[in-house]
Lab assay of single mutants.
Amino acid sequence: TFYNFIMGFQNDNTPFGILAEHVSEDKAFPRLEERHQVIRAYVMSNYTDHQLIETTNRAISLYMANL
Rank of each mutant, 00 (worst) to 15 (best):
M44W: 07
F16R: 01
I60M: 07
E25Y: 10
Q10E: 08
E34Y: 15
V43W: 03
Y42L: 02
Q37A: 11
I39Y: 02
S45N: 13
A59I: 07
G8V: 07
M7D: 00
G17L: 04
A28T: 14
R35Q: 09
N4C: 13
I39R: 00
E21K: 15
H22F: 13
M64P: 01
H36L: 15
E54N: 07
Y3N: 00
H50M: 13
A28I: 06
T1E: 03
I18D: 09
Y63N: 01
V43H: 02
H50T: 13
D12Q: 14
F5I: 02
A28E: 12
E54F: 07
P30K: 02
N57I: 14
T56L: 14
P30M: 04
K27F: 08
R31K: 09
I53Y: 05
H50V: 13
F9Y: 09
Q37M: 09
S61C: 14
D12I: 08
G17W: 05
V43Q: 00
I39E: 00
M44T: 10
R35I: 04
N46Y: 08
H22N: 05
S24K: 15
N13C: 10
T1R: 06
H22G: 02
I6C: 02
A65S: 11
F9R: 01
I18P: 02
Q51F: 15
T1A: 07
S61V: 14
P30G: 01
M64E: 09
V23R: 01
V43M: 11
Y63A: 02
A20P: 02
N13V: 07
E54K: 08
A65I: 11
T14M: 03
L52R: 01
F16H: 01
N57E: 15
D12P: 06
N4S: 13
S24N: 12
F2Y: 03
A20C: 03
L19E: 02
Q51N: 13
E34P: 10
L52E: 01
T55R: 05
I6A: 01
E54A: 10
L52A: 03
L52V: 05
Q51G: 11
D12T: 14
T55W: 09
N11K: 10
V23Y: 05
